[in-house]
Structure formats: structure tokens, C-alpha cells
């Protein structure tokens, strides 16, 4: 996989996110409800995704990675910043525009059990987007297309007549991918698509997504909570922490020359399945836990856990700056 081919500087990005912030209203606190509670889910996040490219978006729970993905798809309201798709601004797309856009951008969910309606047959699940968008008039017309999609994702042709409960987790995830592909989108947000699957099945789904990408030139925003799986599918990787992107770099730079202390801690936290190697590895544990998103600290979000913290980190939030070619990080001290 030669990812670099996909992001030549001349290419115009398929998706561009500029200074995206998403704040959620979490009600009011205090006896008279005088204090508004605001969850700072995503703050000032910027990145591009080029045609045919996969951007891995990695972060722990509550880091804002899913919210970022959903904001691009118009599923959550954007508080600040802009989102462009094929050069057109879609930041505050209305209901109709979101529906129109969903032809081009689709979502694959994490939980293959919760994301398929147990009362619908596979054929109805996969055909639904086709019917909603008027690509076909009725289910009979859709049958041929559904059969093609099921074959594409490696499911048996008779799968359409069955219900989701007849399938294993990996097969259900294939159904979810077939549904996402039905409208021939150009961009797919995959929100932890393999986290719920067993190791031996995980690779099947990741490989399928890679094959589909090279076949159709799809772009992915691949969301994950650790760095092990994304290495195989991503061309570039963005690391999120408490609503900020702390490092954004070409895939191999993240693994071979990480800059941000959080990236390094995250790499060190994933145990290597090889006892002598794992014992010998230098481990960077970062103590403590991520900050409360209702009340994030001023300055750098990682300051409370960072081994290199200085006064500057407490005073001002660092922004992403260029390090090596193809690598940007947000840190004052590294």
C-alpha cells in the first residue's frame, strides 16, 4: 500500500475540515440552574482527506473522534468552523442537503448487532438506501443490485432472504458495508468498524475494506481507539486527545518517529504479542485520566498527564505545527 501516491499536493481534497468545533449543551447546574454546562467535544480540529485516501482517526473514549466523523456527515450540529466536500461548503447543511449528500458519504457503525434492524431481511436492509433515494422503484428492481452488493462484500447469494440473527458479527459487518456501498459513495466514515469483532475475523473485514477502496477509489475516515489496526489501512493518521488533534502525520512517521508525548504513550500502551519483545520494550505510562470535557483545563489538554509539562503548557494551548515533512504536532516542548 503506497499511501503517499494519494496525497500529492496538487490533488484537491475530497473532504476538508477547518477549525471544526462541536459543543454540546449538557443542561444547567446549580440550584437555580444558573450555570450552563457545555461539553467541549471537539475543538478547532482541521484536516483534509484526499480521494482514495484513508485517514485513521485514533483516540480514546471521549476524545471526540466519533463526533468529528458524525459532524462531517451532518449528523451533529457544528458550533464553529467549516466543512467542505469536493470544494463545496456543507457545514450547516439542511435536512434535504444532508439527504442529498448521503449519496456520496456514508457511515459504517461499530456494533454490527445494534446497527441492523433484527426485523428486516438482509435484502431490505441493503435495498433501503436505494429505495429512499429513488434509485429503484421497488424491492424487486433492487434484488439484482442487492445480489451484486452482497457478492462484492463476500456474502453468499442466498443471504438476502435471511434475517440478521442468522449471521455472525463479521458477516453482519459485511452487511453494514454493503448497505453503505449501495449508493456508490465516494467517502465512508467507518466508526470503529472492527472493534467489536474477534481477532481472526477482524482482518477479514479490514482486508475487505482495503479491496473495496482500491476497486472504487473510496476515501475513508477510519476511526479507532488504538494504534494496532489502523496501521494496516491508513495512509495518514490523526491522534485525538480530549477534543484536539495532537498529532497528524503520514502513517509510518506515527509509528517510527512519533513526536507528541501522548502519541508515544498510546503506542507504548498497546502490548506487543511477543513476550520477550514486550518485556524489553520501554514503557511510557501516562498517569491519571483524560480531563473532564465539561471543564477542560486552560492551555494544553494533556498537561495533567504529560511528563514534560512546563508553565507554557498551562498558559496557552499549542497548535499543530510542521515537524518533519508530512508530520505536524501540537506541543510546546517536543
Amino acid at each position: 500500500m503506497t499511501g503517499q501516491a494519494h496525497n500529492r499536493p496538487g490533488d484537491s481534497p475530497l473532504v476538508a475540515v477547518k477549525d471544526l468545533s462541536v459543543l454540546f449543551d449538557a443542561g444547567r447546574a446549580g440550584f437555580w440552574g444558573g450555570k450552563r454546562l457545555i461539553v467541549h467535544a471537539v475543538e478547532k480540529v482541521s484536516f483534509d482527506i484526499h480521494p482514495g485516501e484513508t485517514l485513521g482517526l485514533v483516540g480514546e473514549s471521549g476524545s471526540g473522534k466519533s463526533t468529528t466523523g458524525r459532524a462531517i456527515l451532518g449528523r451533529v450540529p457544528v458550533s464553529e468552523g467549516q466543512i467542505f466536500f469536493q470544494g463545496k461548503e456543507i457545514t450547516h447543511a439542511g435536512k434535504n442537503q444532508v439527504r442529498e449528500l448521503s449519496r456520496d458519504m456514508q457511515l459504517v457503525f461499530q456494533d454490527p448487532y445494534a446497527s441492523l434492524n433484527p426485523r428486516m431481511k438482509i435484502i431490505d436492509i441493503v435495498a433501503e438506501p436505494l429505495l429512499v433515494h429513488g434509485v429503484v422503484k421497488n424491492i424487486r428492481e433492487a434484488a439484482k443490485e442487492v445480489a451484486r452488493l452482497l457478492e462484492l462484500v463476500g456474502l453468499p447469494p442466498d443471504a438476502g432472504a435471511r434475517y440478521p440473527h442468522a449471521f455472525s458479527g463479521g458477516q453482519r459487518q459485511r452487511v453494514g458495508i454493503a448497505r453503505a456501498l449501495a449508493l456508490k459513495p465516494r467517502f465512508i466514515v467507518a466508526d470503529e468498524p472492527v472493534s467489536a469483532l474477534d481477532v481472526s475475523i477482524r482482518a477479514q473485514v479490514v482486508n475487505l475494506m482495503q479491496d473495496l477502496q482500491s476497486q472504487f477509489g473510496l476515501s475513508y475516515l477510519f476511526i479507532a481507539h488504538d494504534l494496532a489496526v489502523v496501521r494496516h489501512i491508513s495512509h495518514r493518521i490523526a491522534i485525538m486527545y480530549a477534543g484536539n488533534i495532537v498529532e497528524l502525520a503520514d502513517r509510518d512517521l506515527i509509528y517510527d518517529a512519533p513526536v507528541h508525548p501522548y502519541t508515544r504513550a498510546l503506542l507504548s500502551a498497546v502490548p506487543v504479542p511477543d513476550p520477550p519483545v514486550q518485556r524489553a520494550r520501554q514503557r511510557i505510562t501516562c498517569p491519571g485520566e483524560p480531563p473532564n470535557p465539561l471543564n477542560p483545563p486552560s492551555g494544553c489538554r494533556f498537561q495533567s498527564r504529560c511528563p514534560y509539562v512546563t508553565q507554557t503548557c498551562r498558559d496557552a494551548a499549542p497548535v499543530l505545527t510542521q515537524r518533519r515533512s508530512g508530520q505536524r504536532a501540537a506541543c510546546w516542548n517536543c
Binding site: D198, A203, Y255, P273, V277
Partner: peptide, 20 residues
Amino acid sequence: RATPRLDVVTERMVSIDGVP
């Protein structure tokens, strides 16, 4: 083989075909 490793670069993940 199927467990992804941070310290080894492979172009394609190895899976075990079929299901338990």
C-alpha cells in the same frame, strides 16, 4: 499471525477464513 503488531509492518492483515 492475525493479531496486528505495532512493531512489524505488513501490507495486509492475515485472517483465519471462516467462523468458529
